[in-house]
Simulated scan of single mutants.
Amino acid sequence: MSITMHRLNYFTKREVPLLDTVAQYNYLKEELQAAMNQVLESGSYIMGPAVKQFEEAVAKYCGIKHAIGVANGTDALLLTLDALGIGPGDEVITSPFTFFASAEVISQLGAVPVFIDIEADSYNIDTTKLEAAITPKTKAIIPVHIFGQPVEMDAVMELAHKYGLHVIEDACQAMGSAYKHRPVGSIGTAGCFSFFPTKNLGGYGDGGMVITNDDELAAKLRILRVHGSNPKYYHSMIGYNSRLDSLQAAMLKVKLPHLDDWNRKRRQKALVYTAQLRVTPLKLPMESQGMYVIYHLYIIQTPHRDALLRHLADHGVGSGSYYPVPLHRQQVYQPLGYGLGSLPVAEQAALGTMALPLYPEMTDEDQAYVIAVVHDFFEKRGELQ
């Protein structure tokens, strides 16, 4: 019997989730409950002191002037585009390989998303294709730091300056990652974060934030999030009801000091995966020089994705397909005319990418079991080196 099968049999069948939000809660339970009780006893549940305190903590963490809490990561993108005056007739360049919200917000304002292909290694937009997509209608670029992998921001910013474009960093999966020692989200006109429970810094419900050094933009965002009013009941804009509630802010403030340590643990576990899975034919994550990747997800790629997903599930291992349909091939965007094969790298990624379990509290034994199950899959196919 092979070494891989010995290893697989050594472990009794385990249940290893793709992620475990409860483990983190249990670790901080007393602090979180104390923070929650403080808010409940204050009676200030919307836009209270806890929100301002968390905003100040995030601004300091990112080394930036303004942090504006909103209801979720999608609203962070939407309000930023709106505050920048993006609307009907405008074009915004973004990635086709991301969560739908990155393009959805462009369309909600009547603008047109323009998709360019991605890099095969990072799954981020291919900045060498960026300039060719710029037209007189282009008003902004939304680079998406997908899976916690920073975009090549020097190239993005160079073209943005050349053509007078706004850059809204979609850092919803990347809080804590860095590009050449600069926190992602702090490089462009604005950066947008999500605090959805599964994120590296996740709350216990929805939440989002915009960061920026632009005083005027920050002021507009603070007005837009409260129905366009300043002061209350006096409306200078058509706005939104998009506020980060005090309970989420208080609990996220408890978590924020732990984020760097959690991200380091993610990176350590990613290194173990990469070292141990090199004996398989999987396409594994790569880190470019100057990039600090925080592995929101550990993404692998294989033409046998669906079979591997089933094999993992059969052995109690959680996994997920990210993303099975690229945005330019979604039904709602068919009128834009992107035919099959128009963005081949994104389309290839959509056919084969998937995530393995990765979270800070994951035990060495659980990770070893996941690796053994993956080895077993490829050994049975005769593809294990």
Rank of each mutant, 00 (worst) to 15 (best):
V293Y: 11
A171E: 08
I142Y: 07
L201G: 09
T98Y: 11
V374R: 03
A178I: 05
R278T: 11
Y240I: 02
E158H: 11
G73F: 01
L384D: 09
A160N: 03
I125C: 01
N37Y: 13
A368W: 10
K162D: 04
G208P: 00
V167E: 07
N230H: 13
H296E: 15
A67C: 13
T138R: 07
P88W: 15
I294T: 15
C192I: 02
L18N: 04
A23H: 13
T274W: 05
Y292C: 07
E169Q: 06
P150H: 11
S321N: 13
D117G: 04
L79T: 04
F378S: 00
L247P: 03
K162N: 04
P96N: 03
P143S: 03
G239V: 07
G176F: 05
R264T: 15
R266E: 03
G87P: 13
L165F: 13
Q173I: 00
I118E: 04
A171W: 11
A355W: 09
P324K: 00
I68C: 02
P360K: 04
N241F: 11
V317H: 00
E15S: 11
R182N: 05
I106V: 12
Y204L: 06
V370Y: 01
E119S: 14
F147N: 10
T4N: 12
I141D: 05
I116Y: 04
P183L: 00
V156M: 04
P303C: 07
Q331Y: 14
V345C: 14
L224W: 06
I125N: 02
G337R: 10
K180W: 08
K253R: 10
G203V: 08
F378H: 02
V373Y: 00
D306L: 09
E347V: 07
L309P: 03
S236D: 11
E91H: 12
Y369S: 02
S321K: 08
H235S: 14
G110Q: 05
P285F: 04
H66T: 06
H235I: 01
G318K: 00
D121A: 12
D364Y: 08
V92E: 01
E158Y: 09
L32G: 08
E31G: 03
N263A: 04
S288Y: 15
R14V: 00
I299M: 05
A83V: 11
L78N: 10
L284P: 12
V332N: 14
A355K: 08
D75T: 08
V51G: 03
K199V: 00
K232Y: 11
